[in-house]
């Protein structure tokens, strides 16, 4: 759907999509990195299971929601991709068990 302009230079960032290794350009948002990697969709909807992909790229539409490092429903168009990031596409309503693995600390 998208291709990268040639000769942009810049540093490369390694990350994974559903466990598969991928690379992005430092400065990409996660959504841009997904588009550049040739991903068609980033999630399926909790209502009908239809596939969705980034739509507005500016934090409005919430279509680009993915799980990042175990934390779900992140707006991928607002978050810069980082070295070693584990990105998971979301299938319907997220299983709550996977959220348990994302430990936070409530003081």
């Amino acid at each position: 759907m998208f291709r990268r302009l040639p000769d942009l230079g810049g540093e490369t960032v390694n990350f994974t999509i559903d466990g598969r290794p991928a690379t992005a350009r430092l400065g990409d948002t996660v959504a841009a990195a997904l588009l550049a990697s040739g991903m068609e969709s980033c999630r399926t909807t909790p209502v009908s299971g239809a596939p969705r992909a980034p739509y507005c790229m500016m934090g409005v539409c919430f279509e680009c929601l993915v799980t990042i490092n175990g934390i779900g429903n992140r707006q991928s168009c607002l978050i810069p991709v980082a070295e070693g990031m584990a990105i998971e596409t979301q299938k319907g309503a997220r299983s709550i068990a996977s959220e348990y693995s994302a430990k936070g600390d409530a003081a």
């Binding site: 759907m1 998208f2 400065g27 841009a32 239809a50 992909a53």
Partner: peptide, 25 residues
Amino acid sequence: WTLPGVMTAGGAQIALKTSGLVPDG
């Protein structure tokens, strides 16, 4: 308009500005 591959023109512009991405095909 909810199909992957349909997006706002502004969204494509943002992909260009921030990441040097252009729509393909």
